[in-house]
Amino acid sequence: MKSFNNVGAIFKREIAGYFGSPVAYVFIVIFLVLLGFFTFYISRFFEVGQADLRNFFEWHPWIFLFLIPAVAMRLWSEERRMGTIELILTFPITLAEAILGKFLAAWAFIGIALFLTFPMVITVTYLGSPDIGPVFCAYLGSFLSAGAFLSVGIMTSSFTRSQVISFILSVIICLFFILAGYPPVTDVMAGWAPNWMLDLISNLGFLSHSISIERGVLDFRDLLYYFSVIFFMLFVNGIVIQNRKAS
């Protein structure tokens, strides 16, 4: 109960921090505009003439790649830069509570941004009769991969007091996770790499997991994948803070 309160207090502060500054609104607007642009102009949503949202969801990882590190970069870097990390770590809360509170707040924020794409769903149900189950699953998959990206971002943010460095590091790591399962890359690798290695690498990537969820297949292994990535990144975050709080 106490632990829940502590996570809640950190969560509330972070959420208020997002919405207390114009950055949050700018982020949401950019997110929605970019998604709309890619879906309608690049993927030609109307011209394709299919009442499903595949063209919409396939852009999510690429937009997340740049926007989520931007959301996550301030989480620890800012505390380091302003010295408030000294406050937060001497409060009677555990490090895990602090990390979880921050992570959940950022995740909820992205969840709100994702929720605001609901006009897409309305559009597509107006134009045709899509399968609503897979759409729901795809949202879940998108939300989960957002969480995974975010966990990478919060981890890199604990490395440095510079938000820019945190951002760049996080984009690089996330890019690796996307490319690991990206068909053009796996095709090239298929030429020389043994099968087990190919499997290993593509299974490490975000895409292979989000694609199966987007098809409406909620496999326990995919969920496990996302949660273990998140857990691992937050764990590393904890270790980094523990060891570097001195500096």
């Binding site: 502060r13 921090g17 302003m82 406050l87």
Partner: peptide, 10 residues
């Protein structure tokens, strides 16, 4: 703490 850290946005 030294330099009195606070959250400037609150």
């Amino acid at each position: 703490p030294e330099n009195a850290p606070v959250y400037p946005d609150m």
